[in-house]
Computed example of a mutant assay.
Amino acid sequence: MELVLQNVEKSFGEKKVLTNLNFQFEKGKIYGLLGRNGAGKTTLFNCLGGEIQVDGGKMKLVNESKSRDLEMDDVGYVYSLPLLPEFLTGYEFVRFFIDVNVDVIEGRGNNIDALFVMMHIAQDDRHKLIKHYSHGMKNKVQMLLFLLTKPTVILLDEPLTSFDVIVASEMKQLLRDLKKDHILIFSTHILQLATDLCDELIILNHGSLTRISPEILTQPDFEEQVIELLRDESQYGSTKENADDGND
């Protein structure tokens, strides 16, 4: 399974944010999305998640000889600022989420406590109001939902920055376990985290996506080279990935 972006365009007024953007994301990989503030990472995620419409281009899921348009239900979005109903307990919210998504979740929601255990959420915390949860706890609940719905594409917007060292390590392992069945795109400003967790690094710059050459990542000064790429991608030889126009 691949997520194929073909000539994706998005502007806000006179400002072009995504310009003729082409890329192919493969299932089984975690992609680290790097870019300076204002480069358009959130806009790209919002387009993929269906929160805003693209101005042009195609976003498709391609599996062998079949392809179809990307739909909202194909995408799960872990927000940097979790959006959860704070008047419910964690357990109540997960129970409610299962009830309203029963057709999608099927038998995966039979043991809620097992899901909380998997996410290392203590028994007492499960029955606290979400408004009393830490930022990291709320992100855990967000990620728990994907264990239930199993969307093809999972977008992660700075999800680990609020975790302590131990929890961040647990979450990184969870993401590595999830990737075999999903396409994971991980937006972060922390280069070391991206290189540690992700299978491939890509840069969003000047409205387009550029794959960072694997050779750069093996060099002693790779951090400096990546920073230079973020300044101006045209200085280095990584080529933009062109989606196959035949996948209609």
Results as ranks from 00 to 15, higher is better:
residue 32 G to H: 01
residue 215 E to H: 10
residue 233 E to F: 11
residue 198 C to R: 15
residue 75 V to K: 08
residue 212 I to W: 00
residue 139 N to Y: 09
residue 1 M to N: 07
residue 62 V to G: 00
residue 17 V to K: 05
residue 223 E to R: 13
residue 35 G to H: 01
residue 34 L to A: 02
residue 193 L to C: 06
residue 3 L to G: 07
residue 91 Y to T: 02
residue 97 F to R: 06
residue 235 Q to H: 13
residue 156 L to S: 05
residue 55 D to E: 12
residue 104 V to A: 07
residue 190 I to A: 00
residue 161 T to Y: 00
residue 18 L to A: 11
residue 96 F to K: 08
residue 8 V to T: 06
residue 74 D to H: 12
residue 55 D to V: 10
residue 83 L to A: 09
residue 71 E to P: 08
residue 34 L to Q: 02
residue 151 P to H: 01
residue 128 K to Y: 07
residue 130 I to N: 03
residue 199 D to W: 08
residue 55 D to L: 13
residue 71 E to W: 02
residue 133 Y to M: 04
residue 239 T to G: 13
residue 194 A to V: 04
residue 89 T to M: 02
residue 145 L to N: 10
residue 194 A to Y: 00
residue 163 F to M: 00
residue 95 R to L: 11
residue 68 R to L: 02
residue 127 H to R: 14
residue 81 L to S: 02
residue 116 F to S: 06
residue 205 N to K: 15
residue 46 N to M: 10
residue 165 V to P: 10
residue 228 E to V: 12
residue 235 Q to S: 13
residue 248 D to Y: 07
residue 137 M to I: 05
residue 56 G to Q: 05
residue 74 D to K: 06
residue 189 H to D: 02
residue 126 R to C: 06
residue 34 L to E: 05
residue 234 S to N: 12
residue 54 V to Y: 03
residue 172 K to T: 07
residue 219 Q to D: 12
residue 44 L to H: 00
residue 165 V to R: 15
residue 107 G to N: 12
residue 45 F to G: 14
residue 52 I to Y: 08
residue 211 R to K: 13
residue 200 E to T: 08
residue 54 V to A: 14
residue 78 V to Q: 04
residue 106 E to L: 15
residue 122 A to V: 09
residue 170 E to Q: 11
residue 61 L to W: 11
residue 244 D to S: 04
residue 192 Q to R: 10
residue 70 L to H: 06
residue 246 G to P: 06
residue 222 F to T: 14
residue 19 T to F: 15
residue 225 Q to D: 13
residue 87 F to R: 12
residue 2 E to N: 05
residue 136 G to D: 00
residue 128 K to W: 15
residue 79 Y to H: 12
residue 78 V to R: 03
residue 141 V to L: 13
residue 111 N to E: 11
residue 235 Q to Y: 14
residue 194 A to E: 04
residue 109 G to E: 10
residue 214 P to V: 07
residue 100 V to K: 02
residue 135 H to R: 06
residue 173 Q to F: 10
residue 91 Y to N: 01
residue 18 L to G: 11
residue 28 G to I: 05
residue 4 V to H: 06
residue 10 K to Q: 03
residue 123 Q to L: 05
residue 226 V to A: 02
residue 202 I to T: 11
residue 228 E to P: 08
residue 189 H to S: 02
residue 68 R to F: 01
residue 90 G to K: 13
residue 172 K to I: 04
residue 13 G to M: 07
residue 98 I to M: 07
residue 166 I to L: 04
residue 107 G to A: 14
residue 77 Y to T: 08
residue 46 N to W: 05
residue 134 S to P: 01
residue 74 D to I: 02
residue 75 V to Q: 09
